[in-house]
Design a protein around this nucleic acid. Structure first.
Lengths: 133, 133
DNA sequence: ATAGGTGCAAACAGTTTGCATGTAT
DNA sequence: ATACATGCAAACTGTTTGCACCTAT
């Protein structure tokens, strides 16, 4: 059987993918990671991005950010509990610090709430000021 | 050119699809709609479900409920502002009445919040009491 | 030398679309 | 009669996987 590797190797593609995600201060989609990482590693294939990002999620280095209907995005872990804002114009997703612990109490009695997600939709500062369209 | 139909027809499949969504008191995925509606219309094809649900959304009869990573679900419109709870065991999605208007204020200044979504994850009463597994 | 990693292409799942046929009006 | 709806299969998109080749260790 194949099994999970017992050891990770340092490769150019893995380094590029990590670098791209660390540099971005917002969650990136697989496509965004591919495009950005290809600047450092031109021949980079999309399968490698999927596999590497998947591995980084398993390692706990990355956390997936799922927003309905759209492809998953990934951000570096460990920035504490936070939520997200998605801009309708540029379609980028931003971090939103803070939370409302009361959300847990929205559920009707009988429902056991273990986790929650708050998503905000609107227009980001850049797009609102007409800067980058 | 093709264009949008100027008139809707009443067909068995459309009636079955509406009925299924009205009977469910929770959002249903395309697959769930197909399975349930096929009890009334055996030969029903999945393309018809996609097209009909899409049309019902355009008409405003249905509203899409998107939960990250999973196929979209649909519920009948007009039940007022509410959010959703997703059970980790049975994977069903339930309505959650109420809201926290303060969520709008989570966004950093400069961000224009136009809408929001709150998702709760956990275990529903059925699954929690060990009823249906 | 060898366990892992990479790129390519094939395989998949969910969704959309073209088209010949069926049917509500 | 005719415009709209349906079912099937093909086409697409995003994601996963098999495999021969490459490379960090």
């Amino acid at each position: 059987m194949k099994g999970v590797p017992v050891q990770r190797r340092h490769t150019r593609q893995r380094a590029a993918i990590r670098a791209v995600l660390e540099a971005a201060h917002r969650p990136l989609s697989i496509g965004e990671v591919l495009e950005l990482a290809q600047r450092a590693v031109p021949g980079l294939g999309i399968a490698t991005v999927y596999r590497t990002v998947g591995a980084l999620v398993e390692e706990g280095f990355l956390t997936g950010v799922e927003i309905g209907g759209e492809p998953a995005r990934y951000e570096v872990s460990g920035r504490g509990h936070h939520h997200h804002f998605r801009c309708r114009r540029c379609l980028r997703v931003f971090e939103v610090d803070g939370c409302l612990p009361e959300v847990q109490r929205l559920a009707p009695s009988g429902f056991l709430v273990e986790d929650h997600e708050i998503l905000l939709f609107g227009v980001c500062p850049d797009c609102n000021s007409g800067k980058k369209r």
